[in-house]
Structure formats: structure tokens, C-alpha cells
């Protein structure tokens, strides 16, 4: 698997000049991605009061809900919760199964945000850190994505940051040591997608939430990603 094909799967920009095709990093990522393809993500379900049954909260349901309510379900709205942990304040803990991101506060509390996570085969778990932050990040479709979708060609040199940009208002770049994992926590131009397994491995938040998180988190903050059955990033 080439670096560009990996980038294509993740729908993100990897500066080509900074990622040699045969680097050890690429090899490790390729192995990781191959393993990740085996993962089966847990799904969100939503209670349908009309039928009094739980139904899968899929993209169709999510769009329908968002149109009716103007936001994702209440459970995914930002709030402060009790959170007893030994992790330091400032740590980010991602519960990919429940689609929550926690920002640890002092006194056993945390801010909980709703998130969207990787679709089947793209989920992952591991311990990384925030290596870089960016306001209104540029998004550039990888070459393979442009091949699949000619409309994406207009952004081959990068789509400027803005409301229509898939990376949304802010991006936190996740690193392991000094290496970019190629995963990010970022905003979105699809706010209805919070609560879904929909991304190519990145953690997405609505723009207000990612901006709130961006303003709180510091470079170097520890990020723990929990996801049942997902491949472990670099074999924790």
C-alpha cells in the first residue's frame, strides 16, 4: 500500500515531499491500516418513539434528525460530567464506541463532546499526543480521491479553510513521538455526522466544539483513544 493510497483512504492531505514512499513510517502505517480493516465498530442506536424500538443511527437517520432538530441528539451535546480518572487535567480521552471525547478537568470532572469516528475498518485505538494545532486548516484531496471524484480536482492544490472545508474550523494533529500519525481531531462541514462511524479514521466534532477544545488543549497533551476491537496504533 503506497503512501498516497493510505492518504486517499484517510481523505487528508499528506505533503508528498514530506512522506517518502518507502519510508519505515509508511510501512508501519500500511501494516496498521491493513489491521484496521479487520475492525468492526460498535454502532449508535436511537430510540424511535413511533415504533418504540431501537434503530440504527445511520447517516440517513442522522440527516433526518439534524433537519428536524438542528443539532445532533442531546447526548452528543457538549457538557461537563463527573469523570474519575488518574489522568492529568488537559488529557483527551476518546471513547470511540460511545462517540464521546472527554477533556479532563481538575476535581474529577471532564468536558464531554459528541464525535464521529472511523467507519468499519478504519477505527483505531492507541495512546498519542497533540503534536500541532491549526485554525481553518487547508484540505487537499489525495490523487486517488481525485481519480474517483473528478469534482475534487478543483482542490488538487488545496481547499482553503472555510465553512465548506471537510476539516472544519480547527484541526489537532495527532502525533506519536515526533511522527505525524496522519490522524486528526478536526471540525466538519457535516455537523449531522456526530455520533456516526463515518470518517476514515479521524475524529470529527462540530465546529463549535472543536473550537472550544482547540482553545483549551495544549501542544503535547496526551490523547487516549479507546475503541473496542479496533487495531492498536503501533501495537500498544
Amino acid at each position: 500500500m503506497s503512501a498516497q493510497s493510505i492518504a486517499s483512504r484517510l481523505n487528508i492531505l499528506i505533503p508528498r515531499q514530506k512522506l517518502p514512499l518507502r519510508s519505515p513510517v509508511v510501512a508501519l502505517i500500511a501494516v496498521f491500516c491493513a489491521c484496521a480493516a479487520l475492525a468492526q465498530a460498535l454502532e449508535t442506536q436511537i430510540f424511535d418513539p413511533a415504533t418504540r424500538t431501537w434503530v440504527t443511527y445511520d447517516p440517513r437517520q442522522a440527516v433526518k434528525y439534524y433537519r428536524a432538530h438542528g443539532q445532533a441528539p442531546e447526548e452528543f451535546q457538549r457538557r461537563i460530567v463527573d469523570f474519575r480518572t488518574a489522568e492529568k487535567p488537559g488529557t483527551i480521552i476518546i471513547d470511540g464506541d460511545k462517540h464521546f471525547l472527554y477533556y479532563v478537568l481538575p476535581d474529577f470532572q471532564a468536558i464531554r463532546y459528541g464525535i464521529g469516528v472511523g467507519k468499519d475498518g478504519f477505527g483505531w485505538a492507541g495512546i498519542v499526543k497533540v503534536g500541532r494545532k491549526q485554525e481553518w486548516p487547508t484540505w487537499t484531496p489525495p490523487a486517488e480521491m481525485i481519480e474517483r471524484d473528478p469534482k475534487a480536482a478543483q482542490y488538487k492544490d488545496g481547499m482553503p479553510g472555510g465553512p465548506e472545508n471537510p476539516l472544519g474550523a480547527r484541526a489537532l494533529y495527532l502525533y506519536e513521538g515526533n511522527q505525524d500519525t496522519i490522524y486528526r481531531i478536526h471540525g466538519t462541514n457535516q455537523p449531522w455526522s456526530i455520533g456516526l462511524n463515518i470518517s476514515s479514521g479521524c475524529i470529527r466534532m462540530n465546529n463549535d466544539d472543536v473550537t472550544d477544545l482547540y482553545n483549551r488543549v495544549e501542544i503535547g497533551a496526551k490523547v487516549i483513544v479507546l475503541m473496542q476491537g479496533a487495531a492498536l496504533y503501533r501495537g500498544v
Binding site: L42, Q45, F47, D48, P49, T56, P73, D95, D97, H99
Partner: peptide, 13 residues
């Protein structure tokens, strides 16, 4: 809003 849940019960983070 309607309650949401995960398709399988997991332990709190």
C-alpha cells in the same frame, strides 16, 4: 430528544 445508546454495552471510559 430521543435517547441514544451503543449497540453493545461497554464499560464507561
Amino acid at each position: 430528544s430521543p435517547v441514544v445508546r451503543t449497540s453493545e454495552a461497554t464499560a464507561p471510559a
